[in-house]
């Protein structure tokens, strides 16, 4: 009983607070803020779906429409309900993703500050064709912050072993993909997963628990975990 459920409230409150909006944002500052997003979302020429869908042409697109991307049940439900990414709905979403789309896999905590949201959306808008016609730049989004040798990336993991090893992960990270203070690790592209784990193992990413957990995983074990979590329903 008594499990936490995300509250499915419409984002009316957030919308009511919509400020100066469309013209007011600073895309250069938005580009800086976007660094918080690039771990999951690519944008720009050649951008593809990674942990999250790419964000080219996001404005005025219906939700859940990036072909081939596996959306959460929550996002699929919102899409079926007719959610369209307008300035207002994007503003509400990046204020608090889960208050707009309950059970979205997007575990980002949100931007509290209206100016931050305006700037970020001004930046994202430069990657939507209409109404602004600004040439697309090179991809800003590099989902990876660490380089891993190709032979390590080439290892094909054993998902059955990964399933056993995953018991060490699911003491904290939820197998359902729900995230609340601890990020979701399901449905990642295997390469991103492997690179992230090696970044902890090599001490490039700072988090004492993750450095410790990754530190004793072999290359094969990391590949096994990546294979398991990539396919987790």
């Amino acid at each position: 009983m008594i499990k936490t459920r995300y509250v499915l409230t419409a984002a009316c409150i957030a919308w009511a607070g919509l400020a100066n909006g469309e013209a007011g944002g600073d895309p250069e500052r938005g580009a800086q803020l976007y660094r918080q997003c690039v771990g999951c979302h690519q944008v720009g020429e050649g951008a593809v779906d990674r942990v999250g869908p790419h964000l080219n042409g996001i404005f005025d697109r219906a939700a859940g429409q990036s072909e081939g991307y596996r959306y959460s049940d929550g996002m699929q439900r919102a899409a079926a309900g007719g959610l369209v990414w307008t300035y207002e709905s994007l503003d509400a979403f990046i204020t608090d993703p889960r208050s707009l789309v309950s059970r979205t896999r997007m575990s980002f905590r949100g931007f509290d500050d209206q100016q931050d949201r305006d700037d970020l959306l001004a930046y994202l808008r430069t990657f939507s064709a209409d109404p602004q016609n600004i040439p697309e730049s090179a991809p800003t989004a590099v989902a990876v912050d660490h380089s891993v040798a190709p032979e390590i990336l080439a290892i094909v993991g054993d998902p059955a072993y990964g399933e056993y090893l995953s018991g060490e992960c699911t003491a904290c990270h939820q197998a359902s993909g729900a995230a609340n203070g601890i990020p979701s690790i399901t449905n990642w592209p295997t390469e991103d997963f492997v690179i992230a784990m090696h970044a902890y193992k090599d001490g490039v990413r700072e988090h004492p628990v993750m450095q410790m957990m990754a530190g004793r995983l072999s290359n094969e074990e990391i590949a096994a975990l990546a294979a398991y979590f990539e396919g987790l329903e």
Partner: peptide, 10 residues
Amino acid sequence: IGWYDGITAD
């Protein structure tokens, strides 16, 4: 807080 939700789900 995230861990609490994680371990109880586990």
